[in-house]
Design a protein around this nucleic acid. Structure first.
Length: 760
DNA sequence: TTAGGGTTAG
């Protein structure tokens, strides 16, 4: 016996454990509670596989309190709280009464609402004098709150162990109470390395790395855990390089890194995004012949994915035999980030137990790669398919942005309802997404309301709202907002200036725009493009050309595009040709440039040039994509392509189209074959969309289809009496001749009259 | 036995 006992104390690895197990079997001691309890305890220290521990437990016909406790401890180390609770229930059914050793384990696994019940139970059993149980209860309240109850228990203790002080310190930090944590730390007698590390972690979580470093440097003793705390503090606050240099420092001091260190170092390397550095880290790890655990391998997957080597990431993923949800998610988001949505979705569909992050990664993947409708659809799948999975802020940021991207106001409002119903708290980026959505949908009133209501605003908040004002022609409001932002100490950036110049351009604020442009310290190429656009639209074509000629960098397509567009508005054939020539070289596949130039030729009655251009376009294989549009109804997006008759309810649509036309005419709307238009205010437009039936919405979509363009409610409508084409007259151009290309025809409007010419 | 450190999504 004594030989076996001494053997037991020497077991350090799973292998030794198995040998020891064999010895016990050999001595026919198998099944005895004492030995199985011992073996299970060793299982916990050597982190034996769950399967192995379960087999041991099941081999005992009548487990006693020691066997139960050892097994509970094993589950607890794995954080399998449900297994702990289940086994505890089994223990009570088996009539085995729990002792003082069981309760700390049990308390650690209880859910929030069971906590007080357990506390009451402990009091009833008179076990509340046990220091470990008291510590477990204190820790439970410190973690889950109310923290004041933890403090009461703490104050009631006549003798406090270091663990009690430390649980209190980290409890205060968990609730963001720096003062509380500091007070306990400072009054604590015999601070140990755990107390100091808790302070370092606390300041790291607050983002105060200077104070964290002060405490770290002041530590009388440091362990690898203290180093890890400091390293992850740097890493998680976005200071990857500091994390890596502190790691070097740690190595120089001869501290042996552990698995947690590696995970932090790998993730810092991932944040740098430097593939060369990543590869040298991997060879460093290989040279040390480390056995990597699941966390480390997952961090490596993420690192390779972020550094752009998805093949290497996938290889590690495929070779892993113990993947967890995070490993899957790292791979899924890795593919999504690089735009490989097919691979991303394939893994997503294969993944056995998807969690919220999996859904968020996939939804964000669609949203950020321009597949807004897919993002919204997937989100609906998440809310209907996955019971008990509630969207969070990250989900809603993607969904709201996707709604904004397609300009679907009703869907956007539905997303807002979900935020409200689920009481999802938004931080700045959440509010920014709302501003973006409302701005894109043209609800500037709502966008302003969100902007005013948010607790703190960053540069993105300002930029989103300014971009909204810019897009809708509210030039002065955009400029006012810029002054407000500088007053609040936020310096406009590249994007702000782009929006401001766009705002001036759309509102025709030439002088203001010039001032803005002059105030930019180092104008980028995009700023020059905006300025050419502003000058060009305002009619100052010579200035526009001069700016293009004198700009310090090679103009890109955006600059020439602005010039071409202005040439089209002001019918400048030569300048238009110049711009177009450059554009045909820079982006030969863009059909829009051909169309604009042909419009210029048409306006000059140079029909031969129009024909020549159209032939070139066909020879070059440039195709104008069919106009695609969509309309939202009942939370569903209906897509339409010009000329498409494949909608499942086409018969209803056609029948309704007639009725609709009549009804709208009787309401005073101007209706023609291809569009329903009239001066309509924002509220009225919303009401129209909301009060009519689904048929109406679908019919709107079809009208869009027939016209081959997105439906718009516009002002200053003109309708061609001959071909029934309706166009939007820009007030500035009133009285001038306008050329529109639509339905394979050119339509020249002048004073409301139209002359048409077929070109194929 | 109790207290301190780790990977994924915007």
């Amino acid at each position: 016996m004594s030989l076996l006992e001494s053997l037991a104390s020497n077991v350090k690895t799973l292998n030794q454990l198995q040998q020891f197990h064999a010895q016990i079997l050999h001595h026919s001691l198998h099944g005895q509670n004492f030995w199985i309890a011992n073996l299970l305890r060793i299982c916990t220290t050597v982190r034996a596989p769950l399967q192995y521990a379960r087999q041991l437990f099941d081999s005992v016909p009548h487990p006693n309190v020691f066997v139960f406790t050892s097994m509970l401890k094993f589950y607890s180390q794995l954080n399998s709280h449900s297994d702990v609770l289940e086994l505890f229930a089994r223990m009570r059914t088996a009539g085995v009464s729990p002792d003082a050793f069981v309760f700390p384990i049990l308390i650690k696994s209880t859910t929030a609402d069971q906590g007080t019940a357990i506390h009451a139970h402990v009091l009833k059993l008179g076990l509340n004098s046990d220091r470990y149980i008291k510590n477990a209860l204190l820790d439970m309240y410190a973690r889950r709150g109310p923290i004041v109850v933890a403090r009461e228990l703490f104050d009631e203790m006549s003798e406090k162990a270091a663990a009690d002080w430390n649980a209190m310190i980290s409890g205060y930090w968990r609730w963001g109470d720096e003062t509380g944590a500091k007070e306990v730390f400072e009054t604590m007698p015999g601070k140990n390395v755990v107390s100091w590390t808790a302070m370092v972690t606390g300041y790291c979580k607050m983002g105060d790395l200077v104070k964290a470093r002060d405490y770290f440097d002041g530590m009388p003793v440091k362990t690898v855990v203290s180093w890890n705390a400091m390293l992850s503090g740097y890493s998680q606050n976005g200071f990857a390089e500091e994390a890596l240099s502190s790691f070097k420092e740690m190595m120089d001091e001869g501290v042996k890194p552990d698995e947690t260190t590696w995970v932090t170092v790998i993730s810092s390397c991932a944040a740098c995004g430097d593939l060369k550095m990543a590869e040298s880290l991997v060879s460093f790890l290989e040279s040390r012949r480390l056995k990597l655990n699941c966390f480390t391998k997952t961090a490596l997957i993420d690192m390779y994915a972020k550094c752009g080597n998805l093949t290497a990431a996938r290889k590690i993923f495929e070779e892993m035999n113990n993947r967890n949800a995070v490993s899957w998610n790292a791979m899924i988001s890795g593919y999504a980030r690089h735009g490989d949505l097919a691979s991303s979705r394939e893994l997503f569909d294969m993944m056995p137990e998807k969690n919220l992050v999996s859904w968020n990664s996939m939804i964000a993947g669609y949203a950020q790669n321009g597949h807004s409708a897919m993002a919204i659809e997937l989100f609906k799948g998440m809310t209907t398919m996955e019971e008990g999975l509630k969207p969070d802020e990250v989900t809603m940021v993607s969904v709201v942005s996707a709604c904004g991207h397609v300009g679907a106001l009703q869907l956007g409002k539905w997303a807002v309802d979900i935020i409200v119903k689920n009481k999802i708290e938004l931080n700045t980026s959440g509010y920014n997404a709302l501003i973006y959505m409302y701005s894109r949908c043209g609800s500037m009133k709502e966008a302003k309301r969100v902007f005013q209501s948010m607790p703190s605003r960053d540069i993105v908040s300002y930029n989103s709202l300014i971009a909204g004002f810019a897009a809708h022609g509210h030039g002065y409001e955009a400029l006012d907002l810029m002054s407000k932002m500088t007053q609040e100490g936020i310096t406009p950036d590249r994007i702000t200036f782009i929006s401001l110049l766009t705002a001036c351009s759309h509102a025709g604020l030439l002088e203001e725009g010039k001032k803005i442009f002059e105030s930019i310290k180092e104008p980028s190429i995009d700023h020059y493009a905006c300025m050419v656009d502003l000058l060009g639209r305002a009619g100052d074509m010579d200035e526009a050309k001069k700016l293009l000629d004198t700009m310090p960098m090679q103009p890109h397509a955006g600059v020439y595009g602005a010039l071409l567009n202005a040439s089209c508005i002001h019918r400048k054939v030569e300048l238009g040709e110049l711009a177009a020539r450059n554009l045909f070289e820079l982006e030969p596949e863009n059909s829009g440039n051909y169309v604009l130039l042909s419009n210029i030729y048409a306006s000059a009655n140079r029909w031969n040039d129009v024909d020549r251009l159209m032939i070139t376009m066909r020879q070059m294989g440039v195709k104008k994509n069919a106009g695609m549009s969509w309309i939202e109804f009942n939370g569903k997006l209906h897509h339409f392509v010009a000329g498409d008759r494949s909608h499942e309810r086409r018969e209803d649509i056609y029948r309704y189209l007639e009725e609709l036309g009549q009804r709208l005419r009787s309401l005073g709307y101007l209706v023609d074959k291809s569009c329903v238009l009239r001066d309509v205010e924002e509220e009225e437009k919303e009401q129209m969309l909301m009060t009519h039936s689904e048929k109406l919405a679908v019919a709107f979509g079809l009208l869009v289809t027939e016209a081959g363009a997105v439906i718009r409610v516009v002002k200053n409508l003109r309708i061609c009496s001959d071909c029934h084409l309706s166009i939007r007259m820009i007030s500035k151009l009133e009285g001038r001749e306008i050329i529109v290309r639509d339905n394979n025809r050119f339509h020249c409007f002048k004073h409301g009259e139209c002359s048409c010419k077929d070109y194929w």
